[in-house]
């Protein structure tokens, strides 16, 4: 990966509630993720993992509570922190080529010298030779590579990965694990949601289990780390 052009950033969720109509998706979630930490969120479907990550991405407004990045509040429109977000939906256009997709988002994010940045990222995710192919013709693994490249366009200090391995075959998961390892080692703060233990979850430095919208376990130590992830999968 290219040398980082960011300062490490911490995230603080304070007493976050999120209500969708009558459903309380998150209940009083409070936690701080330290700069450079790789936090893995585990939990059953509907436990609130995706909602929490979408709040961190500022795609969803919390019903109560606040989110802040290091010393800047997320409510501050001038906040320089703009997380990179990868979800199980690829968030790229099937009707555009890999290069067109990345150039589009690079220009929207006012990335300097977008053509160069896109070229470098296509090289990094191993899609240089398919740059002119429509994303709609790609396999799931290739689409996910484009999605990761899109999330990295602006060199984010914080990376949010919402079940990034969904639908990937074993070589795809291995590639993703290696990519996340390099991103973690570059000093980025990473929050990712996963289903159970995997090659990717082993990259985490912290495991947090959510159940019915609340944090029910939070550990950094080896033995309990594994149980937090596996219990969630039970």
């Amino acid at each position: 990966m290219t040398p980082p052009a960011f300062s490490p950033v911490a995230l603080r969720f304070e007493n976050i509630d999120k209500r969708y109509g009558g459903l309380l998706a998150l209940r009083g979630v409070s936690l701080t993720v330290a700069p450079g930490e790789c936090a893995v969120f585990a939990g059953r479907n509907g436990s609130g993992k995706t909602t929490l990550l979408r709040i961190a991405a500022r795609l969803v407004r919390p019903s109560r509570g606040s989110l802040s990045f290091s010393n800047s509040s997320c409510d501050d429109e001038k906040s320089p922190v703009r997380p990179g977000f990868v979800a199980h939906a690829t968030m790229v256009y099937d009707e555009l080529t890999a290069e067109e997709n990345l150039l589009l988002f690079a220009r929207l994010q006012t990335v300097s010298r977008p053509e160069r940045r896109v070229e470098a990222l296509l090289e990094e995710v191993g899609l240089s030779d398919r740059r002119a192919s429509l994303v709609g013709t790609f396999s799931r693994g290739m689409r996910q590579r484009v999605a990761i490249a899109r999330a990295l366009l602006h060199e984010p200090a914080v990376l949010l990965l919402d079940e990034p391995a969904t639908g990937l075959d074993p070589p795809g998961v291995a590639w993703l694990a290696e990519a996340i390892r390099r991103l973690r080692d570059s000093g980025r703060t990473i929050l990712m949601s996963l289903h159970g233990e995997s090659e990717i979850s082993s990259l985490g430095t912290r495991a947090i289990r959510l159940d019915a919208g609340s944090v029910v376990a939070d550990t950094r130590t080896g033995a309990t780390f594994r149980s937090v992830l596996t219990f969630a999968d039970a």
């Binding site: 979408r54 991405a57 500022r58 795609l59 703009r82 997380p83 977000f85 979800a87 939906a89 690829t90 968030m91 790229v92 256009y93 099937d94 988002f105 929207l108 994010q109 899109r150």
Partner: peptide
């Protein structure tokens, strides 16, 4: 909505 590109746009602009 197909690939949740609206979220990607909201994150970018």
């Amino acid at each position: 909505q197909h690939n949740d590109t609206l979220s990607a746009l909201r994150l970018s602009v």
